[in-house]
Computed example of a mutant assay.
Amino acid sequence: MRRRKTDYLWIGVFVVLVAFAIPWFLWGNAATWLGLPVWLWWHIGWMGLASVAFALFARGAWDRGMNVDPEEVGFDG
């Protein structure tokens, strides 16, 4: 049962990542910060967050989903 809950959690994480990847709520906003538009900063931060989420996903859920034993591929942990 725990595996199924984890799967649903990852599905939710990726749905949120995709849903907010395009900052539609910033369209038409001409505000800038440190010389760059705010929407560009949103993308920079969002891609950082997506990178962290994928790194966490790749450490456990990916191996389990692909039926790979972590010890077999040299992952300690």
Rank of each mutant, 00 (worst) to 15 (best):
W42R: 05
L26I: 00
A21Y: 08
I44N: 06
R4Y: 06
L9S: 12
L56C: 11
N67S: 10
W24F: 12
R2C: 00
T6Y: 10
L26Y: 01
G48C: 10
T32P: 00
F57M: 02
V13K: 04
A53M: 04
F57S: 05
L36V: 13
I11W: 06
T6S: 11
R4F: 13
A61S: 09
R59A: 15
G12M: 10
G60H: 14
D7L: 02
V73Y: 02
L26C: 01
G60Q: 12
G74K: 11
S51R: 02
D76W: 13
N29M: 09
A55G: 03
I44G: 02
A50E: 08
S51D: 09
I22Y: 05
W41I: 09
V52W: 06
D63M: 15
K5C: 05
V16H: 00
A58L: 07
W10V: 04
G48K: 06
G77N: 08
Y8H: 12
V13L: 09
L9C: 12
L49W: 00
W62S: 09
W27G: 06
D69R: 13
A53Y: 06
A61R: 11
K5E: 13
Y8T: 08
R4S: 12
G60T: 10
R59V: 15
Y8E: 08
V13F: 07
A21R: 01
L17P: 00
F57Q: 05
F75G: 03
A31L: 11
F54R: 00
L40S: 04
G48W: 14
D7A: 10
V13S: 07
F25M: 04
V16D: 03
A30R: 14
I44R: 06
R3N: 12
W39A: 07
F14I: 02
R59L: 15
M1R: 09
A21I: 04
D63G: 11
A21E: 05
Y8A: 13
R64E: 14
F20Q: 01
P70H: 01
K5P: 02
Y8I: 08
L56G: 09
E72M: 08
F14N: 05
F25R: 01
L17M: 05
T32A: 10
E71D: 15
T6A: 13
R2Y: 07
T6N: 13
D69N: 14
N29T: 11
V38Q: 00
L36F: 15
I11Q: 12
F54C: 02
G12Y: 13
K5D: 14
R59I: 15
F54W: 06
W24K: 02
G45D: 03
D7G: 08
D7S: 08
W10F: 13
L49Q: 04
F14P: 04
F57T: 04
I44F: 10
D63R: 12
I11A: 08
F25W: 13
A61E: 13
S51V: 06
D69G: 02
L36P: 01
L34D: 14
Y8W: 14
W33V: 15
V18F: 09
G12F: 13
V52E: 05
G28H: 03
R3G: 04
V15F: 07
G35A: 03
V73A: 07
R3V: 09
R59Y: 09
G28P: 09
T32Q: 14
W33I: 14
T32R: 14
D69A: 12
L56N: 07
T6R: 10
G28F: 05
M66Y: 03
R64S: 11
G65D: 03
H43E: 09
R64Y: 14
